[in-house]
Amino acid sequence: MSGRWRPLTRVGAQVWSLVAVLALVSVGFASLSDRFADLDNLRNVLLQAAPTMIGAVGMTLVIAARGIDLSIGAIANLALALALLGAGTRSEAALATDTTWLVYPIAIASGLALGTLNAVATNVLRLSALITTLGTLTLYRGLGLHITAAGLIAVRGPILAFGRAQLWGIGVPVFAAVLMAVAGWVFLSETPTGRRLLAVGGSPRSAVETGLRTERLLVVAYAASGLCGAIAGLILVGRVGVVNPDLGYGMEFTVITAVVLGGTSLFGGRASMFGTVLASLLLTTIDNGMTLIGADPYAYDVVRGVILLIAVSADAASAHMRSRRSPVIPELRA
């Protein structure tokens, strides 16, 4: 082995195969629908991909630390509900709720707090994150529905600015997503905290014995995931102009699929931010293309389910290969 530093967030074969599949899928849709390759539609794909991508960036950190956050979509919902509660006014006559700029800090703070709560609950209860965040998924969603009375709330004012703003003809959320992904990549591969997070994901037992503050590191990961959920929520609301009960519904599924498909291992310790970005783009492209060719909406779920299974199997297979390569610890006591 050569004496060079090799990043764990490496651009490997997985990334190239994602690029190939993305190209293949795009060519396919372009030949089936003449609207797919339209510049407007491509812009639209990028914009649609932004919330998934942002959520997936946060989820990458959580999964890299051998955790999972099922509540990310519920956080998107509750953070926006809280933002409306704190910075929205509903006049009797008007049809829409007026908002102030305060929705942004409130939504972001809520996302961070709800994510932190996930980590604290996992740390305190010592349960698997799968179970705790399944609990908070229901809890957060219930609270969100309670605040919004489970109704559609049309919104106007600054809350729409972020989701709808454009720069050089491209939606600002797209830039935000790229920025978040770059930040996530730098965090994981360049900062000591990022390395420690990968260490915890690689071997929780060694982490304890090495004196890593595992619990604090998990707070960082889950708070990041909550933050990303809230930002994704802001983008989605900005796009449709409504806070609806379905906001963030099923987001965890898409986001986790993107992360695993991108090459981040569900077994922890290995992450690919670039893969996450590409996989988010691929999933959105498939959604978009299937709509354009007029596919049965239920077929989306079938396709997404199959993709998740393929991604998870590939992950398990490569983990199995690694474990076969690594020697067993021998012992002989005399």
């Binding site: 530093w5 090799r6 764990l8 360049e190 900062t191 000591p192 390395r195 420690r196 990968l198 260490a199 994901g201 690689g202 071997s203 037992r205 060694s206 982490a207 014995e209 090495t210 004196g211 890593l212 503050r213 310790g269 290995r270 690694r322 690594s326 610890i329």
Partner: peptide, 28 residues
């Protein structure tokens, strides 16, 4: 310890230095 407490996914250098990785301007 008798059982190795290493991070297989990380490099030798990172294993030797964790938890305190040397840093410059916030970067490793």
């Amino acid at each position: 310890h008798q059982e190795l407490s290493l991070f297989e996914n990380l490099s030798v250098a990172e294993n030797i230095h964790l938890p305190r990785l040397p840093q410059r301007f916030g970067r490793v």
